[in-house]
Amino acid sequence: MKGRRGVLIVGTVLVLSGFGYLVWGGLGSNIVYFLTPTELLAKGSAAYEAPVRLGGQVVAGSIDWDPGALDLRFQLSDGTSSLEVRSKGAPPAMFKDTMGVVVEGTLNRAGVFESTNLMVRHSNEYTAPPEGHRPVDTYQTLIREEDDG
């Protein structure tokens, strides 16, 4: 009985301190979900061929989408630096100019980021359309561009 209580107290202290370290300790600032293009390029040669998440904004006008080959190229920018991203497959419907994205993949020796997974990182803004607006015009940008040629 006494022994079990001791184990419980030691266990609780261990779990609490481990948790506290994770959250408030040195690790806190190191839990980096994605790197920005500037941070990735700052790694120099270590940036190449290493799997990483890269986040930023799609540079307006940089989207080059080939619907036949499902081949997507665009520039990803953090405002300071930008990298060319190449992705296979159709992106989520919300993907468009100036949208936030996070891509998983590796930077190849040619300086192109080869993405294996593209995720849209949208803002916390929810906006109702102005009077008479067709929402389809806004959120299906890629498909519309395809129709227009």
């Binding site: 959250v23 839990i31 980096v32 986040g55 990182r121 803002s123 916390n124 929810y126 906006t127 109702a128």
Partner: peptide, 27 residues
Amino acid sequence: PIVYMSVRWWRTLHQVQSTPETLSPAY
């Protein structure tokens, strides 16, 4: 509080909380 603040403390895919300012009156 950690779950609530996580979107502000760390870089996440999840967006930060919407506020009455970022949420259109329609919603």
